[in-house]
Simulated assay, not measured.
Amino acid sequence: MTDLTFRTATLADVDAIIPLVESAYRGEASRKGWTTEADFLDGQRIDRQLLIELIKRDDARVILVERDAELIACCELQNQQGIAYFGMFSVAPEGQGNGVGNHLLIEAERFAAREWQCREMSMTVIDIRNELIAWYERRGYRRTGVFKPFPYGDERFGIPRRDDLRFEVLSKALG
């Protein structure tokens, strides 16, 4: 995977990030990969204005992965008082399962530990995503037993197809 390039997103990248994130989670295109949420969420996965605000923040980064100048993966990091929040983790469906996501996760952990001196990385995952949670557990993340409600009624985060969605916090010590 030495042909991967990592960089921080700028506002000029917004129009490329949105379709990447949508393709990894929503609609028929997402069914090519294993991270789809299409069976339990419709609507958008990412809100344009929230993405713009995230890119502008000093305490956040959107990390992009490119291969031959083509955007193939991304994630967000937020420095939350010494704990790095990891989210918006997206790999193009046709590229899932070939190690790109693992390399991006390692790069995000490295950035959080070295650049921000974070001692922990946390994330929220919809708790019915057992295969995804198991993938994170194989990379050292642990289920915390802390749950957060799904933002029902806020279509910026999607339109639920079921009424039992909630997030579980996963965590990993860094460094």
Rank of each mutant, 00 (worst) to 15 (best):
T35M: 12
E94H: 11
R143K: 13
R57H: 13
T5R: 13
I52S: 09
F6Q: 08
K32Y: 13
E66M: 02
Y85L: 05
F86T: 05
A60Q: 11
E76K: 07
F111K: 00
K56C: 15
A60S: 12
Q80D: 14
V100E: 04
E168D: 07
Q78Y: 07
Y25A: 04
G140V: 04
C75Q: 01
V14P: 04
A29I: 13
L77K: 01
V125F: 05
I133T: 05
E168T: 12
I17H: 05
D3G: 07
R166M: 02
Q78V: 14
A16Q: 15
V21E: 03
L104N: 00
E94V: 04
E66Y: 01
D13E: 05
S30R: 00
L20H: 02
R129V: 06
L105F: 06
F147D: 00
F111H: 11
M123R: 06
G145H: 08
I83A: 12
Q117D: 15
Y152K: 11
Q49A: 15
A108H: 03
L41W: 03
D39P: 04
I133Q: 04
E28S: 02
L105Y: 04
I63R: 04
C74D: 09
D39L: 06
L50Y: 08
I18D: 06
A12G: 13
A69G: 11
P19N: 06
G97M: 00
A16L: 11
R110F: 08
L105I: 08
L51A: 03
R162Y: 09
I63F: 00
A38C: 08
Q80Y: 07
R162A: 02
E109S: 04
E70K: 14
Q96R: 05
K32T: 14
D127C: 11
S23D: 11
L174N: 10
I55Q: 03
L41R: 02
A69D: 15
D163N: 14
D163H: 15
G140K: 05
K172R: 12
E22W: 01
I133C: 07
L4F: 07
